[in-house]
């Protein structure tokens, strides 16, 4: 099972630290990487893809150089990262930019700054839950961290694994009654 990464992109160092600090509880299962520009984020994505998968991107819109929406669109067009959940965390994104993010980057959520930690946690939890539901077969490691109810439901729908103990159970003699 390869690691599922969270990538945060924000050009203000203090804001970036705050986001990463707020997401620390998720890091027991989802390593967090960060970048301050879209160009740096691309290099980080390449590095992530050598070790695992990109599960969630939290991106500011106003960045030096290429803007956040444009970066999310390029991630969506890359088959290796198209499945990553995409969240815009921004203090300003005009209507046109937001429409572009929804239509062309398949944006999953929009969070306005300043954010509330509970809201950020809920959004990240929901997005990572969606990601593991779609791309992970073994959901047990995420039960306590993510949406346990939805993961549990999916687990109940999965066929029971064929283990030796099951085989032995079937070979038991019928009860005497």
């Amino acid at each position: 099972m390869s690691k599922i990464y969270i990538l945060c992109i924000e050009d203000e160092p203090e804001v970036l630290e705050a986001v990463v600090r707020d997401l620390a509880p998720f890091e027991v299962a989802f390593p967090i990487e960060s970048a301050s520009t879209a160009a740096e984020a691309r290099r980080v994505v390449e590095s992530i893809l050598q070790q695992g998968r990109l599960g969630l991107v939290l991106c500011d819109h106003i960045l030096p150089g290429e803007d956040g929406v444009s970066f999310l669109v390029s991630l969506h067009r890359d088959p290796r990262t198209t499945s990553a959940r995409k969240v815009l965390l921004t203090a300003q994104a005009g209507l046109a930019d937001t429409i572009q993010a929804v239509n062309q980057a398949d944006l999953n959520h929009y969070i306005a700054k300043p954010w509330k930690p509970a809201e950020l946690h809920a959004v990240v939890r929901q997005q990572l839950t969606e990601f593991v539901l779609q791309h992970e077969s073994n959901l047990y490691p995420y039960l306590s961290l993510l949406d346990g109810e939805r993961l549990g439901e999916k687990i109940r729908q999965q066929p029971l694994p064929r283990t030796n103990s099951c085989a032995r159970q079937r070979s038991f003699p019928p009860p005497p009654w």
């Binding site: 804001v15 203090a91 005009g94 306005a112």
Partner: peptide, 21 residues
């Protein structure tokens, strides 16, 4: 106003999160 909102919301986010932490 949108530009000012952007410029102010970033430090406000920093302040708010720092105070909580």
């Amino acid at each position: 106003v949108a530009g000012i909102a952007h410029e102010i919301n970033n430090p406000i986010a920093s302040l708010s999160r720092a105070a909580d932490s």
